[in-house]
């Protein structure tokens, strides 16, 4: 039987990170990009908890995870407020539609 250890968690986290990166770079919808960001943050959280449990032995990684969860929530709140503001002026949340600033 396969024992789940550090490696499996790290591979899963790396996979989540790659998914998040893919979503962030390909999605044109602002909420989609935000979801990609959350995936990357979750990958980081998983890494921190796994390292903390299997390698380091102290709980500072897990404490850091709690902080990052709160940060992610705060970031989403600010980001979505900005999306609403953007939607009110441009009636879309497609990031490519905002093209007045260029040069």
């Amino acid at each position: 039987m396969l024992t789940v250890g550090l490696t499996q968690y790290l591979v899963l986290a790396a996979f989540l990170f790659c998914c998040g990166l893919f979503v962030m770079t390909t999605k044109r919808n602002a909420v989609g990009i935000l979801i990609g960001v959350e995936l990357v943050l979750n990958a980081a959280c998983l890494n921190l908890v796994a390292f903390s449990r299997y390698r380091v032995g102290t709980i500072d990684g897990q404490i850091a995870t709690l902080f990052i969860i709160v940060l992610a929530a705060a970031e989403a709140a600010v980001a979505i407020a900005i999306f609403v503001n953007y939607y009110r002026t441009l009636a879309t949340i497609d990031v490519d539609k905002g093209d007045e600033l260029r040069g």
């Binding site: 990166l21 980081a44 990052i68 980001a79 900005i82 503001n85 953007y86 002026t89 990031v95 007045e100």
Partner: peptide, 22 residues
């Protein structure tokens, strides 16, 4: 322009900080 600038800023910033946290 402010709405567009803020959207670009928050998208770039959130992406950069997520990668940094990883």
């Amino acid at each position: 322009l402010g709405a567009e600038a803020a959207l670009k800023y928050v998208m770039f910033g959130a992406t950069a900080s997520a990668i940094m946290i990883y």
